[in-house]
Design a protein around this nucleic acid. Structure first.
Lengths: 190, 190
DNA sequence: GAAGATAATGAACACCTGTACAATAAAAGT
DNA sequence: ACTTTTATTGTACAGGTGTTCATTATCTTC
């Protein structure tokens, strides 16, 4: 079954208007009324499609996350993967974040809701889950699989948070280096 | 210099009113107007002290985080700490989270702003930073210290997120066990 | 306890929010 | 092309937001 043309038109107008407004102001300062005025959509119609402005933004971010998922699906799965033989190019996540930096700056902003964070988290987590499941030989020392994955997935986001706080100044190659060292254990003594 | 009594009275009324409202409804559904009505504070006065309802909530959470910080400051520092000789009771963070479960459920809610998350993150991160700095002998394999700490700090929150998603069903003892295994490396083969 | 400083109040303003409903417009199905 | 179905519109309403300003109340300080 096809979607009504009017719906497509309405939603696209709103999404396009949001991008336009984001060029000059922050997501939090954009009101539904303003968005509808620019998109030339009746405000009542807005509520037939979205709950709030974040809801419109979410669409873009879901496309972005999907782009990431597809781009790194294959190389990831082809590796006999386990948590200790990972190479940086398998999870070229930093390239992805840099590519959509403008969006990730919004997502990691203190005022943004946690939903976006969870979307990133769930995506990375799922990647790890699928990859680690392939590596049947590994036994993870009685660590519950759910906790293991959540631990490592969020650790990676920890690097992205640090990168964000440093305003994305660290080069991607360095980040990949560091990540690989952190994953394949971290400590040595002099 | 002392704080004006009127200010103390106003802020306390608002904070108390928030706690009352939180018993019956969620943080997002509480309006400034409603809060002021219950606290018997003029709405204009509200804006002299807080920016929004979250701002009032933040006060409570800062107290909670401070409680955590103080409770685990000493045992942590007394240990010749490094990332591999940690014991669960050093970071008894899960006990803390359980104690203030009602608050952490709000903080990890998808609608809550990232600010609270960052407050948790910064606190755990600072703990790690202070502790790891003591362990002068360790060299962390050319891993940038900032990234190292952010990585491990956020990993721990990864466990809390998983715990939250499982509705805090996993017992604390198990969580401590798993955490220690995850920190002191994770993998073995059959 | 009086004088000066500062905070709280009430009223008003323009704007935003979420919802409802009848009227209209524009698709889809035949 | 015509009918049916469905989406959009305009209007209205009760409430919330954030700000301003003169007035009043309450604290602090001496």
């Amino acid at each position: 079954m096809k979607k009504d043309l009017r719906i497509i038109k309405t939603e696209e107008s709103l999404r396009k208007a949001l991008l336009t407004l984001l060029k000059t102001k922050t997501l939090e300062t954009i009101s539904i009324s303003e968005l509808c005025r620019l998109a030339q959509i009746n405000r009542g119609t807005f509520y037939l499609h979205y709950r709030d402005v974040h809801d419109v933004f979410r669409h873009y971010f879901e496309v972005i996350v999907e782009d990431f998922r597809k781009a790194y699906e294959k190389p990831y799965l082809n590796t006999n993967f386990n948590i200790n033989n990972m190479t940086p190019d398998m999870i070229d996540i930093f390239n992805h974040v840099k590519k959509y930096k403008a969006f990730y700056q919004i997502i990691f902003d203190g005022k943004s809701p946690m939903t976006y964070y969870y979307l990133v988290f769930d995506t990375i987590r799922k990647f790890m889950e699928e990859s680690l499941s392939i590596d049947n030989n590994a036994v993870y020392l009685d660590v519950d699989f759910d906790y293991l994955i959540s631990y490592h997935a969020n650790a990676i986001i920890g690097i992205i948070i640090e990168w964000h706080k440093q305003n994305y100044t660290t080069p991607i190659e360095i980040l990949n280096e560091q990540l690989i060292k952190l994953i394949t254990n971290t400590r040595s003594y002099r």
